[in-house]
Amino acid sequence: MSRAALIMVLGLGLFAGCYGPKSDPEGTVKSFYSAIEAEEWMTLHEMIDPESLQKSGGPGRAAAFYYSIYQDIQDLDLTIEESLVTRPDETAVVRFKCTATFRALGEMPHDNDCSDTLSLRYHDGKWYIMIPGTEGLRPKI
C-alpha cells in the first residue's frame, strides 16, 4: 500500500472514532449516541455538561447509568426530528426518534424505542448534553 493511501486510511480511522461535543446541538446528540452504539462508555462524559456531570456523580456514574440502559445494544438508529436553540449560545432542545436493537446473551435480538428529548447547554463553542433529571424541568418542543 502506498504511503498516501496508508495516511488516508489512518486518518479516516481516527475520524471515525472521534466522539465529542459538536458546534451544533444535533451533532452532539448524534455523536453521543454513536459513542453509545460503539460502547465507548468512558467517552460519554466528554459530551455531558460539566454541571450536569457533577450533579450525576461524575464520569464513572454517568458511564454506569448509560451502560445499565444500553449494555446489550447491537444496533442503534437515530433520526433528529426537531432541534431548537431556546437561548442563543446558552441552551437548546433536541427531539429525536431512536430505535435500539438489543441482544443479550442467550436471547433473540429485539428492538426498543429510545426516542427522547434532550436539553443541551452551550460552552466554549460546543453543545453539551444535560443528563435527564439534572437540568430541572423536562424539556419540551
Rank of each mutant, 00 (worst) to 15 (best):
M130F: 03
G11Q: 11
M42T: 10
L76W: 00
P139W: 03
A104S: 15
I141Y: 03
D116G: 02
R121M: 10
S115P: 01
A5Y: 10
E26W: 04
R103P: 02
S2P: 11
I80W: 13
T43G: 01
A62S: 13
R87L: 06
S119Q: 14
L12H: 03
G57W: 11
D77V: 08
A35V: 08
Y122I: 06
Y33L: 05
E81L: 13
N112D: 15
R61K: 13
L10Y: 01
S23R: 09
E90D: 13
E40A: 14
S68T: 05
Y66P: 02
T101Y: 00
K55S: 10
G125F: 06
T91H: 10
H123S: 07
M47T: 08
E82V: 01
M108I: 11
P88I: 06
E81P: 00
S23D: 12
A38E: 07
E46R: 14
L44R: 09
E46G: 03
E90H: 12
Q74V: 08
Y19W: 12
A16D: 08
L105P: 01
H110E: 09
I131T: 13
T117I: 15
S119G: 12
L120M: 09
D89Y: 12
R3F: 13
Q71H: 15
K97Y: 00
G13V: 08
S34C: 11
L78E: 02
M1T: 05
L10D: 00
M1E: 08
S115A: 01
S31D: 03
K140R: 13
F15M: 11
L105V: 12
A5D: 15
L10K: 00
I131S: 09
E82I: 00
P139C: 04
V93L: 10
M8S: 07
E90S: 13
L12E: 04
P21R: 01
L14F: 14
D111R: 05
Y19I: 04
Y33Q: 01
I80T: 15
P59T: 02
A38W: 03
R138S: 14
A104F: 06
I141F: 09
T79I: 10
D116N: 15
G11E: 11
A35T: 07
D77C: 01
K126V: 08
P21A: 14
